[in-house]
Amino acid sequence: MRTDDLVEFLSRNLEPVDRGAILRTFCVAVAAGIAAALGVAFFGLGVRPDFTTTHALIFLALKLAFAIGIVGLAIVYLTRLMRPGGERRISPFLIMAPFLAIVLLAAISLGSAPRTHWDRMIVGDEWLECLLSIPIIAIVPFAASIWAVRKGAPTDLVRAGALAGLIAGGISAIGYALHCTDDSLPFVAVWYGGTIALCTLAGAVLGPRLLRW
C-alpha cells in the first residue's frame, strides 16, 4: 500500500473529533470504580457500627483524606499519562506525598506512645482483613481505569499501568475505610499504604500487557 493512498483513505469523509470525550470517559470510569467500592463497603462488608462517635469519625476522616489525596493526585497524573508523551509532564515525587505524610504522622504517633503499645498499634485487630480487602475491592476500579486508559494512547505503559493501580488501590481504600475499625496511624500507614503500593506494583506489571495499542 502507498502512504499517499492511506492518507487519502483516512481523510475522506473526515468526522470532527469530540475533544472532551477522552476525559469524560475517564471520569465515568473513576465514578464507576468509586460506586463499586462504596457498594462493597455498604452492602458487603458493612459500615463500621460505631461510626457516629467522635473518635471513629476523626479516624474515618483521616483515612479518607489519605485515600482521597492519593486518588486525586493519581487522577491528575493518569489523565496526562493517557496521552502520548504525557510521561514528560509528571513528577513521581508528588505522587509519593500522601504516603510520606502518613508515614510521618505514623512515626510521630509511635514516638509519643509507649513502646509496649507499638505492636498493637501497627498490627491492629484486622490486618489480615485489610491486606486482603483492599486488593480485592480494587479489582473493579482497576478494570474500569484500564478500560478508560485504553481509550487514550499512553506511551509509557508501565507508568500508566502503575497509576491505574494506584487509583484503584486508593478508591478501594476509600470503601474499606468505611468498614475498618482499626484506628491507629501506624496501622493506616502500613496496611493501607502497603496494600495500595501493592496495587500500584501490580498495575505496573500488568500495564504493558493490558494497555498496548
Binding site: 492511506l6 483516512l10 473529533v17 469530540d18 496521552r83 508523551g85 494512547a153 506511551t155
Partner: peptide
C-alpha cells in the same frame, strides 16, 4: 512504520491536548 504511525495519529487524534504543542505528541507516537 510510517503507515503504522500515520494510522495511529489518525485514530488517536482525540488524545491530542490542544493546549500543548503538536511536535512532542507526534514524537511520542
Amino acid at each position: 512504520l510510517v503507515q503504522e504511525a500515520v494510522l495511529a495519529i489518525h485514530l488517536k487524534r482525540d488524545t491530542y491536548d490542544t493546549h500543548e504543542p503538536l511536535t512532542p505528541w507526534v514524537h511520542a507516537i
